[in-house]
Amino acid sequence: MSSQSIIIIAAMARNRVIGANGGLPWTLPADLKRYRALTMGKPMIMGRRTLDAIGQVLDGRDSVVLSQDPARVMPGALHASSLEGALTLARASAGRRGVEAISVVGGEAIFRQFLPMADRIELTIVDCAPEGDAFFPELDPTEWETIREAEMPVSPGDTAKARYLSLKRRRAVI
């Protein structure tokens, strides 16, 4: 068992939409800066379509891509064909980098698979309700508690207002 925490990092609209047609249905430059700060130096687990939407392997982070087809994973990314394989690669990366967290950055199927083992969620709530084809899973309020909430600073180019939530998994008291 590894001591690295698993942190889901996501942005969702009020209607739980996280994606539309292979991209984000909003533009939030401040949220992209926050995403960079939250993920920098840490391994990121994602699906192939999420990496395709990003368009490149991001600097300063290892991209562990969960996909059944290694030929479709872009060069520079680490390929895993199973959840266990992705965790093994991400834990090894975290160990090499000397970090204590693994970021899980999407998409929908990846979030659903990793939600039961996540320790924290860094969630941007975007104040809109766009059409979409990818959704963030429902969170059980008995399992998650908000430990921090803040309005996102408005920046030029924003297409919506947003707020940040930091959630942690509630631990059962025995």
Rank of each mutant, 00 (worst) to 15 (best):
E122L: 01
P43E: 03
T27P: 09
M46I: 11
S5F: 02
R61P: 08
A77I: 03
T159H: 01
V105P: 04
L123F: 00
T39E: 09
R49P: 01
D31K: 00
I9D: 00
I174Q: 12
A77V: 08
V73G: 13
M44V: 08
R97F: 12
G22V: 03
C128P: 02
R169I: 12
M1K: 14
D52K: 07
M74H: 12
G41N: 13
L83P: 10
G95V: 09
R97N: 12
F114T: 04
I7A: 15
A160F: 01
D119M: 09
W26G: 03
A13L: 00
E100F: 12
T142N: 12
G132W: 01
R163K: 12
D59F: 10
R169K: 15
D62H: 06
R61E: 11
T124Q: 10
D62T: 12
T124V: 05
W26A: 09
G107T: 02
G22C: 03
P156I: 06
A71L: 15
I6S: 01
L87P: 01
D69G: 13
P156Y: 14
M44L: 08
R36T: 12
D62L: 08
L115D: 04
T39L: 03
G19T: 05
I102Q: 00
R48D: 03
V17L: 03
V126Y: 00
Q113T: 12
V57D: 02
I7P: 07
C128W: 00
E145S: 10
F136I: 03
S93L: 07
R170G: 07
P137W: 03
E145C: 08
S93F: 03
R112G: 09
L28K: 04
S93H: 08
R91M: 11
S155N: 10
L115K: 10
A86C: 04
V57C: 05
V57R: 04
